[in-house]
Design a protein around this nucleic acid. Sequence first.
DNA 1: CGCGCGATTGAGTAATTTCAAATCTAGTGG
DNA 2: CCACTAGATTTGAAATTACTCAATCGCGCG
Lengths: 190, 190
Amino acid sequence: MKSFFRQHIEKIISLTDEEFDFIYSHFTPKKLRKHQFLIEPGDSVVNDYFVLSGCLKAYQLDKNGKMHILQFAMQDWWITDYQALYKGINATIFLDCIEDSEVLCLSLHDREKLCSELHKIEFFFRKKSNGGYVALQQRILSLLTSSASERYEQLLQLYPQLFQKVPKQLIAAYLGVSRETLSRLHSQAK
Amino acid sequence: MKSFFRQHIEKIISLTDEEFDFIYSHFTPKKLRKHQFLIEPGDSVVNDYFVLSGCLKAYQLDKNGKMHILQFAMQDWWITDYQALYKGINATIFLDCIEDSEVLCLSLHDREKLCSELHKIEFFFRKKSNGGYVALQQRILSLLTSSASERYEQLLQLYPQLFQKVPKQLIAAYLGVSRETLSRLHSQAK
DNA sequence: CGCGCGATTGAGTAATTTCAAATCTAGTGG
DNA sequence: CCACTAGATTTGAAATTACTCAATCGCGCG
């Protein structure tokens, strides 16, 4: 698992063993069970989470109690309530486990410390953030320009592994349609 | 204008005069007229743009020719086709001016050069990217959890200046509803 | 004064949601 | 191995909502 994490970082920067150990020493592993919450609205948020295994979801409930999924996170993904973490405000989202999962916790404080002490890792986090920004822009464009069935196809293309782990009703809550509508799109094929 | 730009950076980091001049020397000012395009689909994209004055929009056309707005940019905002810029692929969006505008151009090459030579400015760009990421997440949540009229109110709260510059039909194209629907929401009050 | 763009309004249509019920599936305990 | 149950998916029908298309209105600019 440690080497898996190292590979993740070395996709963007290369590290000596010492550098990696230094970086890794700032992370805390955590095991989680299905349905366990990492964040609930109102919590103060100090950590970013890197997913080693399993699957998580970040979501809000609207005034009718309907769930809307902001983000999934599988192996190799980062997830937290970034608004709360970066702005230092209370959480507004739920973050919980779709299945048993393992994560590495990194506090904002430790992240900033790492970035100020090791230029390389600041480069890494900047590139990660840039990549995330582009992905979110693509999702917005997808929400604006594409029909629900097109969005379904796009998601399937982009993250086929997701469909192994996640029930369709959660996919619907991510795409922004009701589960019934998603089901009907599915049967009407194309 | 130069001092306005400096203030923008110094909201996040502080600079000596020499540092600012060094940074500023990498930017190229450009004047643009209403309706002028900075980017069209298929273009290769080398620059990020910082808006000094005016107003721009980034958008796509769907298969029916309908416009969907990814982003507006007013004074103080950065805009470009980030997917194309970061991934080194051809542009997929239009970027044009809603009114006469002035921008500062920064090539990706110069940005990376700056970041590697001046740790501070990498910190700046990382923070900018983090902030942008949060803003996009909020927009996605808004699209998923809120009705069109609620999204209209949220946008009005967040960027009141926008409504001075931008016709309502473009607001509609940003919110993801037809201009007729937006107009009706508006009259039916709330 | 007239043109053109933007905003509004009306009517008919298409799509999605809601609510309810039926069906299917995988995991559990007997 | 089978029956049972909880969760997930599917289906139907009615109601709501937003869309399209067309026509009209309003206003600022030349």
